[in-house]
């Protein structure tokens, strides 16, 4: 479990990072918290001759609120995001998702941007980004651009970032009013990747559900938005049949088997935990 030889580059600005990636092309890879990349390199499942370290790029560490959106810089540590007052206040779903990521030692190193860029289908933050219609900010050889979360996740470990491009930050819309935010998942052990999970947000207005956002993870190559279930919840209001909402969310899923659970299990349990998550979110919004 020793990685193949590589050269480590220590840039201090985004433009330097982009230049280095451009220079070394396929042989280079950015490294953030290293919590996914380093195990893959140590197991020699991946090898890169050049690692471009993002840890010295301080401009990627910022958290800021701008009008109705919250921006989290790519290199903000997961453990920071869990407790940052601005994030807890403006994007509670992000803060609530993070305790489900591995263990605290991992969250101390792992980054928000790394988790989203890595795009593991069982990860919490990509589902949160999808549920909340987050905007991904990227900078590359052709300058900077914005990508809607729904267009970002392509398949397992694959995003719409192009070669040489890095994720620099993520913008989450700020929800206001009476809201509830819940991340619910089934994992074999505390800290394991979820077998199946859901990130859900609701905004209620009396007995009406004004807004609903539901995204599942661990159910396919990418996180999956449950739009029909959201519509059913909005239509049904706070007394909607949650089992039916759950079933709608799971209806079109086709998760695959692995050593921990069958696809059929994931699909059935997805319906259960969507119903449970919405129930909790409604309760939170109403309290």
């Amino acid at each position: 479990m020793k990685p193949a030889p590589f050269e480590m580059h220590l840039p201090t600005s985004v433009s330097e990072v982009v230049a280095l990636l451009d220079e070394h092309g396929d042989l280079a890879k950015p490294i953030a918290g290293g919590q996914s990349l380093v195990p893959m390199m140590s197991l020699r499942l991946a090898s890169f001759e050049h690692l471009i370290d993002l840890n010295g790029v301080s401009e990627l560490n910022q958290v800021s609120v701008n009008g109705d959106s919250l921006r989290i810089g790519a290199m903000v540590r997961q453990s920071t995001a869990e407790h940052d007052p601005q994030i807890v206040k403006s994007a509670p779903l992000v803060a609530k998702a993070i305790p489900h990521i591995g263990h605290f030692q991992i969250r101390n190193r792992g980054t928000v941007g790394g988790s989203i860029a890595h795009a593991d289908p069982s990860s919490e933050l990509p589902a949160v980004a999808l549920a909340l219609d987050a905007t991904i900010e990227a900078v590359g050889p052709n300058g900077s651009r914005e990508i809607a979360a729904k267009d970002f996740f392509v398949s397992t470990w694959e995003t719409s970032l192009i070669d040489g491009e890095i994720l620099t930050g993520v913008r989450f819309p700020i929800w206001s009013g009476k809201c509830g935010f819940v991340v619910e998942e089934v994992a074999r052990r505390h800290g394991d990747f979820a077998l199946v999970g859901v990130a859900a947000a609701v905004q209620v207005d009396g007995s009406k559900v004004a807004k609903a956002a539901i995204a599942l993870f661990g159910v396919g190559g990418t996180p999956v938005r449950a739009s029909e279930a959201e519509q059913a919840l909005i239509a049904g209001g706070t007394s909607a049949d949650l089992d039916a909402v759950g079933n709608l969310a799971a209806m079109n899923l086709a998760p695959s088997d692995d050593v921990h659970a069958s696809g059929e299990y994931r699909k059935a349990v997805a319906a259960t935990i969507v119903a449970r998550a919405i129930a909790k979110a409604l309760k939170e919004a109403q309290s």
Partner: peptide, 11 residues
């Protein structure tokens, strides 16, 4: 007797 096996038995 993991969750998937137990659920299969129940089903």
């Amino acid at each position: 007797l993991g969750p998937s096996q137990i659920r299969d038995l129940l089903v």
